[in-house]
Design a protein around this nucleic acid. Structure first.
Lengths: 211, 211
DNA sequence: ACAAAAAAGGGGGTATTTCCCCTTGTAAGA
DNA sequence: TCTTACAAGGGGAAATACCCCCTTTTTTGT
C-alpha cells in the first residue's frame, strides 16, 4: 500500500523542513513537497504537480497567506483536504479558515501524537475539528450577529488608527467632517465602543490594521 | 568524539519535536532534551540536569518567555551558549535577547543549512550574529537615545490603552487628573507622538500592552 | 414595477475630553 | 545646595463625542 502524501506550505523553513522529518517518521505518511508560501504552492499546482492527500497550510505567511491560499484552493480544488497550521487561535482567523474549507485547524503547540491523529482522521474521515474549533462553531451558531464592515468604513478605520484628526481624515477621504462624524457614530454603536481608542483596539484585534 | 549536545526550549511541540529530528539528522549533533517553556527548563537545570553545549531558546513562550529565561541563564550560568529562535525580528526583542547574553538570534524562516552553520559557529567560535543582528548593533551604537519608561508611566500607558478617560485613569491610579496631564505630556515628548492614539499604537508596537 | 428600506453624504449645536502651556511645592539624590 | 523627579494646579484652545435633523441614491422585497 502506498503512503499517504503530504505537502507542507509554510514560510518558516526551519519549521517546514523539520516537520517533514517528523511526518516522515510516521508509518504510512510521506512528504511530497514543501513550499514557502501560498503563491509558490499555487504556481506549482498550476504547473501540474500531483495534488497530495493532505496539504498542511500555515496561516501566517508573508507573500500569500493561508486565508488567501485557502480561498484559491476552495475555488479550484474544492475536494483537496487541507489542515491549517498556526500559532494563533483567535476566533476570526480560525473561522475564516474553516469556512473557506479547511478540514482541520491545528495549533503549532499541538502534541505530535495529536498531530498524527489529525492527519489520520482527515485522511480517513475527511475532517478533524479540535475542541477549540468546535467551540467556535457553536459560538457562531448561537450568536450569529456578525458585524459587517463596509469598504468605506474600513478605509475610515485605518485612518482613525493614525494620529490624524477627524478633520484630516475627512480631507483624506474627500468627505465632509460631518460625514466622518456619522461614520464614527455608526461604528461606535455597531462595535459597542465609546471612544476612538476603542476603535483602534478593535481594528488591531481584528487585523483591520497591522502595526 | 562525542556529539555536540543541544537542548531545545519551545512551547510549540510540533516545532520542537520536529526540530529535534532535524538536529538529529546533522552529523555531530544530538538533542539532549526538549522543554516546553523557560520555567520547565530552569526547573530541570535546578534539578541537576547536565547543561548542553548549546540551548536553542524560543523567544515567544507563554509561561516564561525567552527574555526572562535568558536573564536567568545570564545570572546563573553566564557561560551557557544560547541561540535565540523566533519568528519576529523587531529590534526591541532582538536587542533584548542579545544584551542578555544570547550568542545568536535566528529567525524561524532560516534555511536549515544556515541553521547548521549557526550551530557550528556558536559551538566553535562562541557566537553567530546574522546581518540583521549586526545591523541592529550598529544602529544601537549610532543613536543610543534609548527611551526609558518608568513603572508608573507604564501603568499609565496601559490604562491609556482602554476606553477610560484621563479622569478615570487618574482615579484608577489615585492621582490628580492634572498629574495624569503631566504624564501624558511627558510621554508625548519622549515618544515623539501627538495624540493618545499615537500612544496606543506605540504601546502595542512595543508590547507594553497585548491585545 | 414600485414602494419601502437601507446606505451614503451632509448640517447645527453642545457637552465633554483632550491637548498644551506655564507655575508651584516637595522629597530625594549627587 | 542645586538639580531632578514627582505631584498638583490654572487657564484656554482644539478635538472628540453625541444629540437632533435633512437629502439623494441604491438596494431590496413583493
Amino acid at each position: 500500500m502506498s503512503k499517504i502524501k503530504i505537502i507542507i506550505v509554510d514560510d518558516h523553513l526551519l519549521f517546514s523542513q523539520s516537520l517533514s522529518y517528523l511526518v516522515g517518521s510516521f508509518e504510512n505518511f510521506e512528504v511530497a513537497g514543501i513550499y514557502n508560501n501560498g503563491k509558490e504552492f499555487i504556481t506549482a499546482v498550476k504547473g501540474g504537480i500531483k495534488l497530495p492527500d493532505i496539504v498542511l497550510l500555515d496561516v501566517n505567511m508573508p507573500i500569500m497567506d493561508g486565508i488567501e491560499t485557502m480561498k484559491w484552493i476552495k475555488q479550484n480544488h474544492p475536494d483537496q483536504k487541507v489542515i491549517a497550521l498556526s500559532v494563533n487561535n483567535d476566533e476570526d482567523t480560525v473561522m475564516r479558515m474553516i469556512t473557506n474549507g479547511a478540514k482541520g485547524y491545528l495549533l503549532k503547540d499541538t502534541d505530535p501524537k495529536n498531530f498524527k491523529e489529525a492527519l489520520e482522521e482527515v485522511y480517513s474521515r475527511g475532517f478533524y475539528y479540535s475542541e477549540m474549533v468546535s467551540g467556535y462553531l457553536i459560538n457562531k451558531l448561537n450568536n450569529d450577529n456578525k458585524i459587517v464592515l463596509k469598504e468605506r468604513e474600513i478605509e475610515f478605520i485605518k485612518l482613525a488608527c493614525t494620529e490624524k484628526t477627524y478633520k484630516e481624515i475627512a480631507d483624506g477621504m474627500c468627505l465632509s467632517p460631518k460625514t466622518i462624524d456619522g461614520y464614527r457614530e455608526n461604528l461606535f454603536h455597531k462595535l459597542e465602543i465609546k471612544t476612538r481608542i476603542g476603535l483602534v483596539l478593535y481594528a488591531i484585534k481584528h487585523k483591520i490594521v497591522c502595526i
